[in-house]
Amino acid sequence: MSGYTEGIIILLCINAIAAMGVSLLTGFTGIFSLGHAAYMALGAYTTAILTIQHGVHWFPAILCGGIVAVVVAYLIGVPTLRLLGDYYAIASIGLGEAIRLILENWQSVTRGARGYPGIDPYTTLPVAAGIFIVLAIGMFNLINSRFGRACKACRDDYIASSLLGFNTARIRVVSLMISAFYCGVAGALLGGFLSFIQPVMFDMLKSTELTAVVVFGGLGSMSGALLGTAVITLVTELFRPISQYRMLIYGAVLVIVMVIRPEGIMGNRELLSWIKAPFRRKA
């Protein structure tokens, strides 16, 4: 396999992990985020700092990256997600901006706006693919469990779910935390893939891209999120020469999908539902 193809596959795995995180939050729990790249940044920087400055092995370092993202998600989620309204959406923009400010200005730890070079290239194809597969299995299992049904219930009717005994605020916070973990790990892998990270890689455009992928693939469909990742990652590679139109196209895709088919390519169905169906009947 050529290095280029291998690179694309690794990138696909990383983007897919992040997209699954956003899909759980936006597609399954109905919470809109404009700052998920910040969780990727937390994962990436935590892992880089642990491996380079503290000599930690990359595997526990990646886990720590995910955990730091989870802790921050918890701190932001608890005050904002117990309210109805767009409080989390606005706080998530604030988070994105705050993380960027901290990364750019805390020179002694993050090395500032010019970026953090010299990260071990630990994200090889087997590592990226292996972590992707484990996390994908976990996510697909999760949405087919009590927790998945709880998320969808909160998404579809906040009040009815709370009267069916769901602690809706807690479910929303937990969903955000899992979503942050996936993005944190994706960020950590991205650092190991590029050997270099920079605050600007995790700006609002990256957050937008994550949401665009999930919306395009289908809100409420996990396989749709994977499909969306594949399509958009490959299209982005193909259209690299006209990259100035890329953002315009993302924006237009978001609007057009919402106007024409808000449920995205897959609707809320899963690609493999025909495989799962006989199993579910037995279960």
Binding site: F32, L34, L248, G251, M258
Partner: peptide
Amino acid sequence: VTLYLLIASMGMSIV
């Protein structure tokens, strides 16, 4: 579903 409006508004902002 206000989520759809939020997403569309983010799209319009980018456009």
